[in-house]
Structure formats: structure tokens, C-alpha cells
Design a protein around this nucleic acid. Structure first.
Lengths: 151, 151
DNA sequence: GACATTTCCTTGCATACGCAAGTTTCTCCC
DNA sequence: GGGAGAAACTTGCGTATGCAAGGAAATGTC
């Protein structure tokens, strides 16, 4: 295998990853915005909070789960707080840490959006693959990303 | 299969796609910037031009190949033109169409960066998968993105 | 028990992008 | 052959992001 050339298989896989990701995220983002006025990024934040105990997470932890920089998260949460979907609090035990808590309104919004989103994921991604393909893709891409943290 | 819930397999595949894509693109972008002062986005433009006849493409066509909006491409090409990696021309036959042409300097830059980039793709993506996995991933993701346009 | 250090978050600044509106050049059609 | 309409960009404006620097709170050290 030459060291400066990609095989055809490698090139196809690489381009397919890029193309599929862009296409799917763009579509899902557009659908969420149209139906629920929520970006995919906002949805992701609400979802992580909904899954967390007390529907609350520290900013640092939340940032790492949604794959964004700390400063990016500060502003993203600010926008959600302005819509009353999230409330900001300070950790009583440690004055440095800021907490983000999902409000009831945020949870309701998330649940409503989930219908659209899950249908979208299936329509534009998983539904186009067989059960076996899904397993193959999961296994392969998980080994690329490192084992997925279970959150 | 419930209509409002994703199966575990579906969820895993979805999260793996997001996570793998983010991780790989972020790493490759950082490597290109560090070693060659080129963003992944810039690299992509140079690559498409290098593959095109006359190393030249119309803006519209280029935009669709690099998956960006027309206005986004205008500025991206402007930045590359400012670095002399690309030259802008007007189509002699149709005054509306703007052409982007890869300069010799741009080609040299691309070739230098390609070493880094191809090694990176292999190190962070394809090299972690078996030949069979690559084929599975390609086939699966191509059916998600629609058949890949051969460019 | 204060001072240095570390941790956690936020803000200033710069960058990159998309949409909608505008400009220029063709094309059509009567 | 001239005016209506379409095509192919480009620009104004708003948004979202990251990095580096800053501020506030906790921790460690002597």
C-alpha cells in the first residue's frame, strides 16, 4: 500500500462520511427549525440536560457532551435561557461552577421536537440502511471516534 | 418497531456518525492549519480545482462540489485569491460566470499539504478500519448521501 | 492564614457562514 | 431589436463559533 496515496476504497469511505454527514445534519437542522424553531445544536443541549439527573449539568460537562468549546456553550446556553428553555444556576457547593437546568418549558419543547427529529433521523439516515449495515457502521465509526461515552 | 423511538442500533449509529465526523474533521483541520496554514475548507477548494480540466471551475459548480452556499464560496475564494493560490477570471463566452483557476503556487501548496492530509486521513480514519469495514461504511453512507457524484 | 496556583466560566475580538436583496449579463419572444 | 425575465454572481447584515485573555472562586503551601 503506497504511503502517499489513498486506495479507492479509502477515498470512497472518506468522501462518503463527509457527504453523508453534511447532507443529514443540514436536512435535520432545517426540519427542526421549520417545525419547532430549534436548531440542531439547541436540540442537542436540551437532550443532554433531559437525560441528566435533576435535568442539570455543569457547563464544562455539557460542553464536552455536545462537542463545543466552553465559550461557545456559554453563548448557546444564554440563547436558550433567553427563551426560558434552560435556567442558569450556580452550584451551591462550588461558586465557580455554573449549572444549566432544563426547565419544564424546555422539556415540553424538547418532547415536541423529538417527534420531528426522530422521524427525520429515520427518514434520512437509519431508515435507508439495513439492520446489518447499522451495526457495521456503528462498530466502524465508534472505533474511529473512540468508544462512545454512554450519555 | 415503534414509530417514535429509535432502536438502540439506530441510536448508536446516529451518534457514532456525528461523533466520528466531528472528531476526524477537527483533527484534520488542525493538522492542516498547523503544518501548512490551510483550513480543511481551503484544501477542499484547491483539490476540486486541481482535478478539474484547466484547473478551472465556475463558481456555481465549485460551490456545489464543496457543499457550500454561493455567497460562502465567493468569500472563500476571495481569501484564496488574496494568497495567490487561486486566480479569478471571467468566462470569455458568458460575462456572468466567474471562474476560479488554481495557480501554480496553489497547486504546489496543495501538493505539499496533501502529504499531511492523506497521512492524517489514514491515521485518524481509514487506518482504524479493516478493508471490509471500509467497504461497508462506503456502501452504507453512499446510500444515505445519494450516490456520490464522481468528482 | 495569606499568597500563589488552579479551576471554571465569561467576554473581546476575529473568522466563517447563510439568506435575502442587489447588480450585471444573457436569453427569449413578439 | 427592445423589453421582460432568468441566470450567475456579489454584498449587507445577522448569527454562530473558537481562541486568548480576564475575573472570580477554590485549593494548596509554607
Amino acid at each position: 500500500m503506497a504511503s502517499e496515496r489513498l486506495t479507492d476504497t479509502e477515498l470512497r469511505a472518506w468522501q462518503a462520511l463527509m457527504h453523508a454527514h453534511d447532507r443529514v445534519t443540514e436536512t435535520l437542522d432545517a426540519e427542526l427549525r421549520a417545525a419547532h424553531d430549534l436548531s440542531l445544536a439547541a436540540y442537542d443541549v436540551l437532550l443532554r440536560l433531559a437525560r441528566a439527573p435533576e435535568r442539570t449539568l455543569r457547563m464544562t460537562e455539557l460542553a464536552s457532551r455536545v462537542l463545543i468549546s466552553p465559550s461557545g456553550l456559554t453563548r448557546r446556553v444564554d440563547r436558550l435561557a433567553a427563551q426560558r428553555l434552560v435556567r442558569r444556576e450556580t452550584d451551591p457547593g462550588d461558586g465557580r461552577v455554573a449549572l444549566a437546568r432544563l426547565t419544564d418549558e424546555g422539556l415540553a419543547r424538547l418532547r415536541a421536537a423529538a417527534r420531528t427529529h426522530l422521524r427525520g433521523i429515520r427518514e434520512h439516515f437509519t431508515g435507508r440502511l439495513t439492520e446489518g449495515q447499522l451495526r457495521n457502521v456503528s462498530a466502524a465509526l465508534e472505533s474511529v471516534a473512540g468508544p462512545h461515552t454512554p450519555h
